[in-house]
Design a binder for these strands. Structure first.
Lengths: 210, 210, 210, 210
DNA sequence: TCCTAAGCGAGACGGTACGTCTTGTCTTCCA
DNA sequence: TGGAAGACAAGACGTACCGTCTCGCTTAGGA
């Protein structure tokens, strides 16, 4: 009896992967645009689905035909960020050089991305951001950091600082730098924030491994 | 427009500060108890005010007579924690010894407190915790860390790492260790977690000041 | 977990049966008024609950706190009619006289009631009426007719015309006369319609019993 | 405003009568089949157009291309019944014999038709039937009865019982017998039901004309 | 000891948003 | 080019909470 059809799933010509119905893309675009505008206006939590569909000039059920919830509409955009960061990480790890040079190669790209979408980042990730978005980004970063450390630091049995703790610590540092930068220091360039981040974290990691 | 009378504010005998109406305390106690039980049962976000008043056997309006919102009921308890941590901090700063010995003297007390109320902490502060509570604790820690660093590290004009960034970094480290510990490593003792935390942070701070 | 509280059920002072909360009565009155006005404006089926609560200046959930559905709001009024007809029936049966004089003693009262609320009857019961209302009235009449025939015509084993068929026939005649009268012959007086009804039905019943 | 093109109306090749697009008939057949199956499963009111097109494996707009509404899909089938009853009526009126023998000559055919499609009749016409279908059948019967009475009973100015009232009465009797039979007495044969019907109605009509 | 006002339970209420469902229209593809 | 497929705007549904409110009961001080 499950009437939960997801639009476009078995779509016209979806076979070859290209040429999704033009209308579908237009509707999704309108929804994303509406969400972002509204988030900037009144903050993520305060935006209701009713708000979104009214702003996007879209029927209520159309929203649910495309996304199961407000969260999914939002995080659908994160795929792009994930791909970007993963690529940077791979490139850095493939390089030759010191550990510091090869590790956490995605951090600069991360701060640059935040710079490019500064307003929306501030609304979603900053001090008073959307919990769901912060968690999503945290999860993404956690994966990246875990892989990175696994490559860089060979597992040597018992460690002073457990691997998982170190991962959390680095992720926390990334998020801390981000929110600090978004909330207070808009004039710093991404590269400068990244430098600060790396200085703090490199020292900590080195210290942890002694 | 201000019809919002807060019970007990101009209460009977409130003059001398003692002897607040016994009933008032009983009602508040019932509300707190209900909230905590419910949070443990289904998580903070899922608990509605309707739930709370039903569980506490209290009239709906009685709730609003005491607290303006669910958040306020919750954070009312944080006063105790704040006092505890501040005291520890003061004691540590008053000591003689190395910087590492004197600084962040409240961190162990913080982890111990989390240990004592482990279940409720996990529900409110852990990976899937209540955003509002995490922010409240963050704010409290931020104050403490800021004071600490101001005492320990004399302001020397331009720094490699801005003071505010360092504060955020340390707070982030505290929270990261906490959620990591709550979510994964229940068997570690508070002192052990604290040791890890200090090892990581001390190295970073030292590195930042070079 | 059933949160389906029906307002007024355990109401204040409801113990003694009187003195139901004044507000409750006002709200219900507003809902009834709104429903009737709207039915006259656009027909029963076309009236949505949204329409009703907007017209009545009442919150949506308030509606559901009082009535489970549009149907129940409507048929709540039928209690009055039922009482009226039952009383008339009893009085007629208690009389002495011919079978024709004693039987179906409620029919005139039924047509008079329709006269008194002619507009709403036409909207609900006439040719294009509300199926639910027609069924409700049918059910009420069926009960009355069944009792009547049981009193008047003693059960004598096998009949030419089964008792139940006769009941349905009489009820059908009542409804037919009603809709015919409502839709076409507004100028006839209730007593005249009743005379026609009785002439037709008495002959049929007598014929059926030979 | 009239963009509502009705498929097949000015159909391809309709000129020569043959080679009507085969698909159209197949589509309509599928829709009818789906409707009937669904009505038997969950009752007429509960069947949505969405249900029908899904069951018929047909696009939504295809439905509207063929029928303007659920009602029209349903009543399209009634043409057959109308023709049948009209033929019977004509045959009976053409006979010689008593009034009772010549009048209402379609009634037996009506009950027989109900017998042949008992399940679908019960679902559509019985106690809890589809209001629209009951009305459609009522209308059909009203026409037939009106013509019949006009033939049988010559207009003699003022009558005790108005002609129109008598028509409604007879139609009501037919429907009452039908629903009674469908809902309770499945074992009676059509001829027996017809006998009961005629016994009741003949007596009434005779009585009305005295 | 009575009186009085605060605390309180109970819960009715107007609102708002939810996620689901159905309708009739409109656009697009394909044979 | 006609017929089918299905995306869409519109809006009602019944439910869940919210924060405000009114109503009497109770209860413990001060008169």
């Amino acid at each position: 009896m499950s009437r939960n059809k997801q639009i476009g799933a078995g779509g016209r010509k979806a076979v070859d992967g290209t040429r999704e119905d033009r209308r579908i893309q237009r509707t999704r675009q309108a929804l994303h645009q509406a969400l972002i505008t509204l988030v900037l206006e009144k903050g993520y939590e305060a935006v209701s689905i009713t708000d979104i569909v009214e702003r996007a000039n879209v029927g209520r059920s159309t929203f649910y035909a495309h996304y199961p919830s407000k969260e999914d509409l939002l995080t659908a955009e994160m795929t792009e960020l994930r791909a970007l960061l993963t690529a940077r990480q791979r490139a850095a790890l493939a390089r030759t050089g010191t550990i510091a040079e090869r590790s956490l190669g995605f951090s600069l790209a991360f701060f640059e991305h935040a710079q490019d979408y500064r307003d929306i980042y501030r609304a979603l990730v900053g001090e008073r951001g959307a919990a769901i978005m912060i968690n999503r980004i945290r999860t993404l970063l956690t994966e990246l950091v875990r892989q990175d450390l696994a490559e860089i630091i060979p597992a040597t049995g018992k460690q002073q600082v457990p691997r998982a703790a170190l991962v959390q610590f680095v992720v926390g540092a990334l998020m801390s730098m981000l929110t600090w930068w978004l909330d207070h220091k808009s004039n710093l360039r991404p590269a400068e924030v990244d430098t600060i981040f790396r200085r703090l974290v490199t020292a900590a990691i080195t210290g942890a491994l002694e």
